[in-house]
Design a binder for these strands. Structure first.
Lengths: 200, 200
DNA sequence: TTCGTTGAATGCACTCAGTGCATTAATACA
DNA sequence: TGTATTAATGCACTGAGTGCATTCAACGAA
């Protein structure tokens, strides 16, 4: 698993990591808006121009590894059991994503900061939800194919939009009021359950 | 209803409208990223600085009347009748927004333009989402205050997130496949109905 | 070991979004 | 009429992000 990459690649990753760590530290101290890209670069001991060699935009330094776990959800839909109905499949798919988020992102300190900053900075918030939106279309298509006689295109989109919107809003609200990992996870589950009820 | 406002206010609105129309036209012709604020101002025959007197940011020119629609929904919640339950109020609030969208945005092509631009420009997509999130929080707060014994903070957020997410996804899907105003409106209504069922 | 190739990092100059501040000129109002 | 507002403007500035040419260390083949 651990590919012994070349020295060049390792150096590149080291630079990238230095930028992330510098950014996180500075954001923690002074807030997202009050830190310039130039300052991040200086703290990481690279040229300002180098920052944009690794990240498309300032926000991306925080979202770099916050990948949307779409594959897990798609897989969960594919694993549909014989007698399983729509609400069960939907709930299982979302639970899979939530569990992964809870296990990997929420307990780690760095991820908590990311969540906190994302909850308070509109720009970050938007970028994060944008990723979920991109995933929505794919989820909707897969779900419709799994329940072709139950869902038309519009209903499938609406349903996925609803569940993603609900989970997003619930987790954001929980994070904003300072909930811990367990409460945030519960809020997300509650949101899924709410939407699942609409397709009983 | 038609307040005869002072000359100063009317002139201000005329400037604002000129900026919106110039922006829409230019965006249509050349795409969002390839139009500068300076060019919009020039086409509207005002100084560049004036643009930011009317809009906080470049993308706000496309969401100019979104605030009005949020107000419509808030008002609909406030007008809650004696025997009206949560699903009725929610449906009425969303219907009010949908009707306004259908009457004003869909025929003018503004909604289509917005959807098309948002689909092709990630930056714009992120910013538009950000605006919707802000509106969501306000709606959730108001809805919770209207049904304090029925909704906790998380459920209120999840519910509003669900309905906004559903309507957004449904309308986007309808617009993407080239539906006309009536079909888009019906798709949005269908999405609301879906979510409303979860709180019967 | 040598030498040509690759690519990460850099420097420079540039565009554009957005802000702060002071000023102008037209409207509102007493 | 004279005074107070305020929309619009001009100017100078910060900071994000890009295009381009250059440098130099790592790479790989002879």
């Amino acid at each position: 698993m651990v590919e012994k990459q070349g020295l060049r690649e390792r150096k590149k990753q080291r630079t990238r990591q230095a930028l992330i760590e510098a950014a996180v530290r500075l954001f923690q101290d002074r807030g997202y808006e009050h830190v310039t890209v130039a300052e991040i670069a200086e703290a990481a001991e690279v040229a300002p121009r180098t920052f944009f060699l690794h990240f498309q935009a300032k926000e991306d330094v925080l979202l770099a590894d916050a990948d949307v776990r779409v594959d897990l959800a798609l897989q969960a839909i594919a694993e549909r059991g014989a007698g399983e109905g729509l609400p069960e499949v939907l709930t299982r798919a979302m639970d899979r994503m939530i569990a992964d988020t809870w296990e990997r992102d929420l307990p780690s300190g760095l991820a908590t900061l990311r969540a906190r900053l994302a909850a308070s900075e509109p720009v970050l918030q938007a970028r994060l939800l944008q990723r979920y939106l991109t995933a929505q279309a794919e989820l909707a298509r897969t779900l419709q194919r799994a329940f072709p006689d139950r869902l038309d295109t519009i209903t499938a989109s609406a349903l996925v939009g609803a569940v993603v919107g609900a989970v997003g809003a619930a987790s954001l609200t929980a994070l904003r009021r300072g909930d811990g990992p367990d409460e945030v996870r519960d809020a997300m589950r509650q949101a899924v359950a709410l939407v699942a009820r609409s397709v009983t």
